[in-house]
Each structure stands twice: as C-alpha cells, then as structure tokens.
C-alpha cells in the first residue's frame, strides 16, 4: 500500500502510466476504432495529414490509412513487447536462480552460456535467428525473448547469491524442505522486485528491437507494425516524410511510457534509493 502511494506521488510515474494506458486502450480497442483490415486500400495514396478529414493522419504510399495502422500497430507492439519480455524473464529467472542457488560447477557452466550470449551482439544474434527460423510474428517474438534474457539471469543470480545464506533460508533448510520449495517459495519472492523493475527495460528494448527488425523488412510483413510503416515511408522520405515520422512518434511515446513506469516502480519499491536521489 505504501509502495502504491509512493508510486502515485511521483509525477513521472503518473505521466508514464497515462501514456501506457492510452497505448493500451488503442491496442485493445483497435477493431472498434478502425474496424476492417488496416493494411487494406483505404483511399488515394500519399494524402497529407489534415488534407482529407476521412484520414486523420493521412495515407501511405499504398493508399492505406496511417491512423488505422498506428492504432492496430499499438496492439502488435504491446503484444510483442509483453510476450517477448515474459519469455526473457522466465528463461532469465530459471537460469539465474539455479546458478545462484546451487553455485559451484552449475553456476560456472550456466554463467559461461550467459556470457556467450552477452558477448554476441544481440541484434546480430537476432538476425541469425530470423535468417534460420524465418520472420513470422511468432518466430520474431520468440527470437527477441531468446536474445533478451542474459541481464535478467545475471540480476536474478546476484539476488540469489545474497539471499541464499540468510537465516530464514537456513531455517527452512533445517526443516528439510526441498530445494524446489526453497527456490520457488522462499528465495524467489524476495528476489523478484528488482527483476520486475528490470522487466520494464527488457520490454522497452524488445519493442525497439522489433521495430528495428521491421524497419529492415525482416519482420512479419503481414502485420501492421510501426516499424514496417517507417520502413515503407523511407521510399518517399524526401517529400512525404510524415509517413515515417508519425509511427516513430508512436514508438517514442510507448517506450517513454514503459521507461517512466519502470522508473516509478523502482522508486516505489526501493524507498531508500528514492530518498537518496
């Protein structure tokens, strides 16, 4: 309760929540705002925003409604961000908690793998995964999750390392509780808050990664993704720059919202840190 109050007292967190809620409403209500296929032909191509009252944000070079693509794109971005983040967090927690809890050879082996993933630039690994498994929306989302877990694993491991020798864990050990119980019921709940805060960073990066991939035309071309639209607008950049500009603002605001919420959570969950700042 105190945390919730502290969260709402921070103006940054409130602004972030409002932005994120707006994007969420756009994504959830996309079919209601703009029923029909957002990638279908809507009118004359390359009409500037405001030129035709029917198209609030104008049309792209294929005559598709940009506003409809933005609203439907919100759903895609949030979905990819959320699912990819969940995948990254689950893998990261699994590897980090086992490595941190058991230590020794298990820890060394798992950290070697984590290091290997961190040494390889994640966007290049993403390119390799897309080259191998193709670029449907499902494979792209899973691939983004696979390249994003190492920092989560490191964070979880660090928390486990400091928690596993505490008295309450030792007490449970003496009671003869299983390792699985110790990891999942005793240590993990205490290790979770910083991981949840970090998940906001993972989500921001996941959305950026997908949009960059879509911009390079390596993501799914059959979904109304913001990155796709920026990539298409590139061909008419010199004259009709608004085609690329509008979806970029949408990405910027979404990432801003996610980061502000993350920062607010961080300050609310670590009150000691917040006061120092």
């Amino acid at each position: 309760m105190r945390a919730a109050k502290a969260y709402l007292r921070s103006p940054a967190a409130v602004i972030g929540t409002v932005i994120l809620l707006a994007v969420l409403v756009m994504g959830v209500g996309a079919d209601w705002f703009y029923p029909g296929d957002p990638l279908g032909l809507a009118g004359r191509p390359l009409q500037w925003p405001g030129q035709n009252p029917r198209f609030l944000l104008g049309t792209d070079s294929s005559g598709r409604d940009i506003a409809a693509q933005i609203v439907h794109g919100a759903r895609i971005s949030l979905l990819i961000g959320f699912v990819a983040t969940s995948i990254a967090v689950v893998i990261g927690i699994a590897i980090g908690s086992v490595a941190g809890f058991y230590g020794g050879a298990t820890d060394t082996a798992l950290m070697r793998v984590t290091e290997a993933f961190q040494t390889l630039p994640n966007f290049i690994l993403l390119l390799v995964l897309v080259a191998v498994f193709g670029s449907t929306i499902e494979t792209v989302t899973i691939a983004i999750g696979i390249v994003s877990w190492p920092p989560v694993a490191r964070l979880t491991r660090a928390e486990f390392l400091s928690l596993r020798t505490r008295d309450f864990v030792q007490a449970c050990r003496v009671q003869g509780l299983s390792d699985a119980h110790l990891i999942l019921r005793e240590v993990l709940p205490n290790a979770l808050p910083p991981v949840i805060v970090y998940a906001s960073v993972v989500m921001a990066v996941a959305i950026l990664l997908e949009s960059a991939l879509a911009f390079l035309e390596l993501s799914d071309p059959n979904v109304p993704s913001w990155g796709n639209l920026i990539g298409l607008g590139r061909n008419v950049l010199r004259t009709e720059w608004y085609v690329s500009a509008i979806p970029g603002v949408a990405i910027l605001l979404t990432i801003l919202g996610v980061s502000l919420v993350g920062q607010g959570l961080n300050d609310a969950l670590n009150p000691r840190l917040a006061r120092a700042r």
């Binding site: 949009s211 920026i230 500009a245 801003l256």
Partner: peptide, 22 residues
C-alpha cells in the same frame, strides 16, 4: 535523457536526413 533513450535510432536517422540533408 529520457526522450533520447526512447527514440528509435533508425527513426532519428531518417528525421535527421529530412532536416539536415533534404
């Protein structure tokens, strides 16, 4: 800092081309 962090680099690049090159 927050705004820069949230800006997709490829989009910033395209907008920079529009402003500074075109």
């Amino acid at each position: 800092g927050l705004v820069f962090y949230a800006t997709p680099s490829f989009w910033f690049g395209l907008m920079a081309i529009v402003v500074f090159s075109v």
